[in-house]
Nucleic acid binder design. Structure first.
Lengths: 272, 272
DNA sequence: AGAAGGACCAGTGGTCCGTA
DNA sequence: AGAAGGACCAGTGGTCCGTA
């Protein structure tokens, strides 16, 4: 029987070796002390469900033009990576950590390009909203499936839901504290960290921002015009909640102590 | 092959005799002239789907206590109609058109009770929101399935989604123009109209309100604290859109003519 | 190993239509 | 015939995990 813990990111699952990712230097200006739970200790919250992944039957013999392997156009980012209008849908080039303004070289895409995708989604949303209003139909306020479908239909097939949801919090940091975001990018690039590490590191400064706003991450998102159209990622919400719990516990332990929104609390998990 | 037009309300479907419901006197203070499309002519918009209704198999032999037919408790409304805490889930008594303050007699429920259900739903929503915030989970802003489930779980099994959605626009009128709502109730009671007719008649004054707010029915709902938690009913949205089209058409036909938000436009359908 | 995204799934909004 | 509501369905939010 498979243990059904979430396996996304660093949510430690059983039968997985413990994750000891970065020892965050926290270049975002908000220094961070211990921060144990950023690496581990936040496993299992709920989700007692099981997947059973029904291997998709590929009986279609139609596809002879499966992959145009003549992929030597090095336009990289900005244009959107691989795949001309040709056939056989290429994957996008993977992201790498780039400094602000830096163009990724080789078959890679930079972070400015990543953030640009969020702006594009916003424009697609606005178009969907305009059409909906004109037709007297329900008007979405967020980037929904409908918007992703519209984007694809409009030729922006390099936009897809899993990708955009995956990096939402990174974009959030970029929106809410561009200075901090830029500093983080530079630091992680210099250290030669991969995109996954950088992405993980984006959580903490956001949690600190939420702390300064009474832990209301929804309010933080909604207050920003370009961010309010994105759903708050589940994990960011959970981290904020967890850190608030820690803060409350710390407050009741050290009565009268000023609780700041910097660094993580002393206790690593939820013990108290 | 079944024609798949919507059959809800007065949306004229084929193989149905033409509906000529009320000749609305429009007691709501907003007089109404022709208003042809309130009765007919608004058939087919989209929805080209088919249902096939899979007759539920009832193989359970468990239910001996199917119906406690000793139903002579005449508590009527306020308490919620039939069914003590007993067994075999009774249906709620049907609504009748009552004046404000009037208590329905016999096995009937009045409209004050109907509106009271909306207030109850609001309270359930608030509880769900409180719990969600406390747990750091996504917090609903509307009366969702989750809220209906919570209501049922809390013992308010007389609250259900189809019913609440069915009368939302009636509650909307009650919220937005209680005077008009009350007048309409009195008029329809006096005329001996049934609940369905009264319900139909609630649309028009709402469309007029929307007209006065630039046809933005969503904005009208959202501006009212007790109404903003309810989804705008599809049909009300469509009626507003249709009437706006008529208004625009009339405006371009009679240039310089002041368009009021009273009564329906001259043209009955969408012809122009 | 790191990453992109097709495809899946539980639970939603919406309301039809078998039921009383 | 009029009405209440169980139950259904298309399309959603969310993200896993087979793929490159």
């Amino acid at each position: 029987a498979l243990d059904a813990l979430s396996q996304e990111d660093d949510w430690t699952g059983l039968s997985e070796e413990p994750v000891h990712q970065l020892e965050h230097t926290d270049a975002a200006g908000n220094n961070g002390g211990g921060g144990g739970y950023w690496d581990a200790g936040q496993a299992k919250m709920k989700k007692p469900q099981q997947r059973r992944r029904k291997k998709q039957m590929v009986t279609s013999v139609e596809t002879d033009d499966d992959m145009n392997e003549g992929d030597d156009d090095d336009d990289g980012n900005g244009g959107g990576g691989g795949g001309v209008l040709g056939i056989g849908k290429q994957r996008e080039h993977p992201f790498i950590v780039t400094e602000p303004g830096e163009v990724a070289r080789g078959k890679k895409n930079g972070l400015d390009y990543l953030f640009h995708l969020y702006e594009q989604c916003r424009e697609f949303l606005i178009q969907v909203q305009t059409i909906a209003k004109d037709r007297g139909e329900k008007c979405p306020t967020k980037v929904t499936n409908q918007v992703f479908r519209y984007a694809t239909k409009s030729g922006a097939s390099y936009i897809n839901k899993p990708k955009m949801r995956h990096y939402v919090h990174c974009y959030a940091l970029h929106c809410l504290d561009e200075e901090a975001s830029n500093a983080l990018r530079r630091a992680f690039k210099e250290r030669g960290e991969n995109v996954g590490s950088w992405r993980q590191a984006c959580y903490k400064p956001l949690v600190n921002i939420a702390c300064r706003h009474g832990w209301d991450i929804d309010a933080v998102f909604n207050a920003h015009p370009r961010l309010s159209i994105w759903y708050v990622p589940t994990k960011l919400r959970q981290l904020c909640h967890l850190e608030r719990s820690n803060a409350v516990a710390a407050a009741s332990a050290l009565v009268g102590n000023g609780i700041s929104c910097t660094g993580s609390s002393a206790s690593g998990g939820l013990g108290f």
